[in-house]
Design a protein around this nucleic acid. Structure first.
Lengths: 184, 184
DNA sequence: CACGTTCTAGTACCTAGTACTAAATTAGTA
DNA sequence: TACTAATTTAGTACTAGGTACTAGAACGTG
């Protein structure tokens, strides 16, 4: 049985969201309407064709992979003295910001600082126990965040790492991380 | 000038890795050979066509997109009372953990909590000013983190949001977020 | 020179579409 | 019920970015 246009369209939105890999042909079968109807619907709803959808997803994930890298560290570490200090750089890309206002989401700045704090400690397994952080001023698209980390307290298996992130000379983030060497 | 077959092919591998969006035509131009040569090369090297490459990337990122979503919120928000409380769930996937020990990187837990704290506040533009957090115990692959957020202090443009993340009844993360409504 | 490798050219075909025209069907309503 | 408007379907021409295949040209080397 066939749904009304409205119902079909809202179903389309949901379906394509849930499974962007669906072709018009498959959708047409699922809705038991012609392929042209599905295409008209996509036009009206502004849903791009499958290939474009996949391209979009690939693009988004491609940048993400490079910036919010699946590596151990977010941001590029440009210097590192184990158990002492380190510097990493993170350039704020479209993937890091709120669409509306181009301001970076806090957790990316946190991730950069946290990763650096963990990377700095010379041990196999290092975890964060706690942190106190402050977002001093919003960071916007394109700005280059340079995080400086310094170990300020060293105990056999416990470290306090201070991180300050700046854009040029402008402090944007400040954090104190309490990290520890865990037994594997 | 033209490279030897071997050099061209290793260049192809590199190029396609660096930019999977390249078509055969573009590659052909770059190498100043015919499009057929590029296709023969891809055959030999077992590199699929661009559309398949993108589809592959999209597939890989699809699961990721749902959990580590590029949306405003990390984790799935399952309930939300604006200006009051909210709950979100994040299942720890391979993308969230250190390879060595399957322990989730702290910033994902932070991201979940931070996103929820921001989502809870009913305003167009909400940013985090500061936070104090504690990683109570490590979270491992597959565990389902349920974050409960509660607004504990409300001022016209400033909120204190407490977040507690649990795995079953086990507290794993605790944070106090100071967020504010910003002028756009 | 002959032979094999490498490269190019060209054709037929494919998928998943766009853009468009035109007809058929259905729904609403005076 | 008849007319109109919205909706749906059908069909054609065309596109990108390919596959699969055939055939010939150019090059290098013994």
């Amino acid at each position: 049985m066939r749904l009304s246009k409205k119902k079909r369209q809202s179903r389309l939105i949901e379906s394509f969201q849930k499974n962007p890999f669906l072709t018009d042909e498959e959708m047409a079968k699922q809705c038991s309407v012609s392929i042209q109807t599905i295409r008209l619907d996509r036009m009206e709803l502004g849903i791009p064709e499958m290939r474009e959808r996949l391209k979009h997803m690939a693009e988004k994930s491609f940048d993400e992979v490079r910036s919010l890298s699946p590596e151990e560290v977010i941001g590029e570490v440009i210097s590192l003295e184990l158990d002492q200090s380190g510097v990493s750089v993170l350039e704020i890309s479209v993937d890091h910001v709120f669409e509306r206002n181009q301001i970076a989401r806090g957790h990316y700045l946190f991730a950069q600082a946290n990763s650096l704090a963990v990377a700095i400690v010379n041990a196999d397994l290092v975890l964060t126990r706690s942190a106190a952080i402050r977002f001093v001023r919003p960071v916007t698209l394109g700005e280059k965040c340079v995080a400086h980390a310094k170990v300020v307290q060293k105990q056999p298996s416990r470290f306090q790492v201070d991180v300050e992130t700046k854009v040029l000379d402008d402090m944007v983030f400040q954090g104190v991380f309490d990290v520890y060497r865990a037994t594997n």
